[in-house]
């Protein structure tokens, strides 16, 4: 059977190709989303005015004909007042901020886990139960009755 070049060329796709395509695609989606929820900057034209640029320049920035620089990304974040790039580390801080401190004892800070603003209640698990966030996430969708407290690293049920 003849070798398929459709398959052969797929094997030549490198990480740099996928990152290039995915980043540009994700970034433009993010900007489109922010424009849809922004109170005043709704279109690329509005964004151009806010950034003091021509609409064609903004269009080029978002379509890759013009290299996106750190400076231009930062300026865009500034006028939109929105962080367009969320790294793993920033995400951890952003979502950990939902942990609300309810007290401290010994060397632990106790928290109730806030998910989507409302407090989720869970069955009390035995004190000393240890697990990762994945382990705790198993309980997020169940209907439980009592709150739990977990340690500040999210790994141990405290009470």
């Amino acid at each position: 059977m003849e070798e398929s070049y459709f398959d052969k060329i797929e094997q030549d796709i490198k990480k740099e190709h996928t990152f290039f395509v995915d980043f540009g695609f994700d970034f433009a989606k993010q900007v489109k989303y922010v424009l849809s929820i922004h109170p005043t900057i709704k279109t690329q034209k509005d964004l151009a005015i806010a950034m003091g640029k021509r609409e064609s320049e903004i269009s080029k920035m978002l379509t890759g004909l013009h290299n996106l620089t750190l400076e231009s990304i930062s300026k865009m974040c500034g006028v939109l007042d929105y962080d367009l790039i969320l790294t793993d580390i920033k995400a951890q801080h952003k979502y950990n901020s939902h942990l609300v401190s309810v007290g401290a004892a010994e060397s632990h800070n106790y928290y109730i886990l806030n998910i989507n603003i409302t407090v989720q209640v869970y069955n009390v698990l035995p004190a000393g139960t240890v697990g990762g966030l994945d382990f705790l996430n198993e309980y997020l969708h169940s209907s439980f009755m009592q709150p739990i407290a977990i340690s500040s690293d999210g790994r141990q049920i405290l009470s």
């Binding site: 459709f6 060329i9 797929e10 796709i13 490198k14 290039f20 395509v21």
Partner: peptide, 14 residues
């Protein structure tokens, strides 16, 4: 043309 073809090929997969 090979490099452009690889990028186009990735779009087919995506």
């Amino acid at each position: 043309l090979k490099d452009e073809a690889i990028r186009l090929r990735y779009w087919i997969t995506k």
